[in-house]
Design a protein around this nucleic acid. Structure first.
Lengths: 239, 239
DNA sequence: CGAAGCATTGAAGTGCGTCAACAATCGTGG
DNA sequence: CCACGATTGTTGACGCACTTCAATGCTTCG
C-alpha cells in the first residue's frame, strides 16, 4: 500500500532499493480512520506524522464565525502532516473526508531516517516545498481568480496529482467531496459553488456525478482555469 | 548584517557558535539590489538562494490579465527563496519593493552545510514550514476574511515578524508599500484597499503615514483580524 | 517645473452572499 | 423492504461587499 507513496516520490526523483527499505521501516503501523473526523486538532502536540495511503483528507482552518477554509486536499500517497515533525504541533486541523488508511511514521524514526539518508532529507524537504507551491497557487486562486476559474483550476490540479499516483481513469477520477466541502476549498458559499458547478456543466467542461468527476474538455477547462502544472514540479530531478 | 537572520533563527532555537560560523561561510557575497525590479523570474534556473538582510521583497504570481497576487512579503532576516535549493526554479517571481541588501548562498554550499550539520537542516526545514504556515493563513484571509479583517491581519502579522528581528518601534514600524502593493497582498483593488485603510483609520485602529504604520489599538486591531500569532511559531524549541 | 506615479473620491455595476424553501438522495432502524 | 429523518443538492429573490470607471488633487523626483 505504501507503494503509492513511492510512486509519487519516484515521479520526481530516484529512490534506491535501500532507501525504499528505510522508508518502509519508518512505518510504525498502518491504521484505518473513519470518515468525517478530525484526525489532528490544531495545536495538539504530535509525535508522529501520517502518510495517507488511501482515502481523502483535508487541512482546514476556521474563523470564530465557523467559516472554514480548506488549505489543501490530500490524496493517496501524500504525507498529510510531514511538517508536524519540525513544527511539533499544527496551525490547522487535519480532517478525514472519507474512510482513510494511513501509515504512522513516528518523528523519532523520521529523524533517524533523515540523518542516515541525507538524500531522503532533501527529497522530503522538496515534497514539503511542493506543498507550499500548492498553497501559493491557492492564494492566487482565492485572491484573483473568479469562482468558475477557481473551480476549474481545482479540478485540473486534482487530475494532475491523482494521475501521478495512478488514480485517474483517463479524464475521469473519483472525487468524494460534497458541494459544501468543495465550497470550503474554493472560498465560496455552498449556493454559489453549486451554481458555479452548473455553469461548468452547462459549458460542457466537466461532469460530476456519483462522486465521479469527468473532464469533458481538457483544453477548455485548463483555459478557464489558466492551469499550468509547472507549480506541481512533475519533472524528474536529482536531489 | 547577517546577524538579523541569526536573530530570527535564535528566536526559535539554539544555534551554536560553530553553526553560526558555518552559516556565515555559506555566504558567497553580499549584494545590493535596486527597488522595483524582478530579482528572480518564475521558472528561471537558479543556483543560489537569497537571504534578505535589509529592505523589502515580495513573492508574486500573476494571471494573464495582469492581475497580481503577492503570496508573501519578506523582511530583513528572511530567506526569500530557500525553497529554490530543492525546487531549482520557482513557481513565482521575487520582486524588490525597496532597495535591498541580500546575501547570496550558493546551493552547493547549502548542500554541504546541511549535510555537515543535520541540526541546521532541521532548522531551515522548520523555517520553510513556517513559510507554508504563513501561506495557509493567507489562504484563510483571502478565502474567508472581509477586506478590513484581511488588512488588519496583515498589519498584525508584519508587526509580529518585524518585532522578532528588532525592526519595530513600539507599536510602530516602517511599511514601505504603496496602496497598490498592499492591495496586491490582500486580493483587493487599489480603490477598495484605499477605502479599507480609511475605515481602519476612522475606527482609530491604525495610522499610516510617510511609510510608517502605527497600531493605535492593538487589541482592537487583533480583534478585527482574529489574529493569533500561533501560526508564526514564535516559541523556542529543540530541533 | 513638469511629468509620472500615487492617493482619494463619486457613481454605477456585478459577482457572489444571504435567506428561504423544496427536492433528491442516503443511511438507518423498524 | 419500506419509512424516516438527516444530509445533500437545487432554485429564486434580494442584498451587499467589492469592482469598475473616471476624474481630481497630491507627491515625488528628475
Amino acid at each position: 500500500m505504501i507503494s503509492v507513496h513511492l510512486k509519487k516520490l519516484r515521479k520526481r526523483t530516484d529512490i534506491s532499493a535501500e532507501e525504499e527499505r528505510a522508508i518502509r521501516n519508518a512505518v510504525l503501523e498502518t491504521r484505518r480512520l473513519p470518515a468525517d473526523i478530525v484526525a489532528i486538532r490544531s495545536a495538539e502536540e504530535l509525535h508522529a506524522s501520517m502518510l495517507l495511503l488511501d482515502g481523502w483528507m483535508a487541512r482546514s482552518k476556521d474563523l470564530a464565525s465557523g467559516e472554514r477554509q480548506v488549505t489543501e486536499l490530500h490524496v493517496a500517497g501524500d504525507f498529510a502532516d510531514l511538517h508536524s515533525w519540525t513544527l511539533k504541533c499544527l496551525d490547522h486541523d487535519v480532517l478525514t473526508l472519507t474512510e482513510c488508511t494511513i501509515a504512522v511514521m513516528p518523528h523519532e524514526r523520521l529523524k533517524d531516517l533523515f540523518e542516515r539518508y541525507p538524500h531522503l532529507s532533501r527529497v522530503y524537504w522538496f515534497m514539503t516545498n511542493i506543498d507550499a507551491a500548492i498553497h501559493r497557487e491557492l492564494a492566487l486562486s482565492l485572491g484573483q481568480r473568479s469562482a468558475i476559474s477557481r473551480m476549474a483550476h481545482l479540478f485540473c490540479e486534482l487530475h494532475a496529482r491523482l494521475h501521478v499516483v495512478g488514480r485517474t481513469n483517463g479524464d475521469s477520477y473519483e472525487l468524494p467531496l460534497t458541494q459544501r466541502e468543495l465550497a470550503e476549498c474554493l472560498g465560496l458559499t455552498v449556493v454559489h459553488a453549486n451554481r458555479t458547478l452548473q455553469e461548468l456543466r452547462r459549458r460542457a467542461l466537466v461532469e460530476f456525478e456519483n462522486r465521479q468527476l469527468t473532464i469533458l474538455d481538457r483544453r477548455g477547462l485548463e483555459g478557464v482555469a489558466e492551469f499550468d502544472s509547472a507549480y506541481l514540479f512533475l519533472d524528474r530531478r536529482t536531489l
